[in-house]
Amino acid sequence: MTSNFPTLVVEDLRTYFYTKAGVVKAVDGISFTVDRGEILGLVGESGSGKTVTGFSIMGLVDPPGRVAGGRILFKGDDIAGLPDDAMRTLRGNRIAMIFQDPMMTLNPVLRIDTQMIEAIKAHNAVSNDEARRRARDILGRVGIPSPDERLKAYPHQFSGGMRQRVSIAIALLNDPDLIVADEPTTALDVTIQGQILYEVQKLCRESRTAMIWITHDLSVIAGLADRISVMYAGRIVESGQVDEVLDRPLHPYTRGLIGSVPSENRRGVPLAQIPGMTPSLLNLPPGCAFRARCPRADNACLTPPEMTLAAPGREVRCFHPHLA
């Protein structure tokens, strides 16, 4: 923990899927940094490559996909392309992941204790009793009442919110340095969502864990993340401090995203929407990927824009950003 390296530095990461129909560039050269105790929001529509980014960091990209380029520096060491055995000692141990749908992430035929203890014992030489004690403590920490009894339950005996708490507890079991959370609150009721967001944030700050929070929901990110990176068609189009990006979006896409969130102060005004759909990542046309849906597009956009520094800590990939 004494190293001076940031917890995670992703540099020009490219994850491609080599399908029969062609190469799908799901993640096409993205870079970001997350440090201890920091929460990075990775925002984008479905199909923008945010989940694949998470799996790339975990080393869980399945064929025909693979990390085709770039570096993933975890505390200074490049873990992209690490052999699976070496990656496994990090996974669930130093880097943990929380999945989207709590109904699907717990094995339905195994008891909670089995699923928690195996995660502890995969990385630590501890006795069953010791592992069980740790599992129980962490269940309590994520707000599960009477954890001793609940340990003996099967997943289907929990509600969705409780299941997600169990998944979060499993991610926290080995006190990781980095947690990749892939839309963990999307499938939950709004009230439960709020509780979980609050608790995750608290746990993260207390233990100084770095976190990447993947979501399509800007309202979730607003109160949670420190910084935010907006993804579109496999690339980051804008990044910066969360308040700045949300208050003064530079990229037309970010602006469109914010405009499509319902909020109280615009009652009666029809919601803005981004026309068109996310482009197919197979054979993307050259130039800016957002061109076809962008109100500001012109001939300049036929060449691909680069990521440019718009202000200190603010980057944007656009020829025509909404500068003040």
């Binding site: 000692t89 990090l90 699907m104 094995n107 195994l110 195996e118 995969a122």
Partner: peptide
């Protein structure tokens, strides 16, 4: 997903397959 989650926990392939 639960198999992927099991992999994300860092379990060995044999445990994932056998359990």
């Amino acid at each position: 997903d639960y198999v992927k989650f099991a992999r994300a926990k860092g379990l060995s392939p044999s445990r994932i397959v056998l359990v």
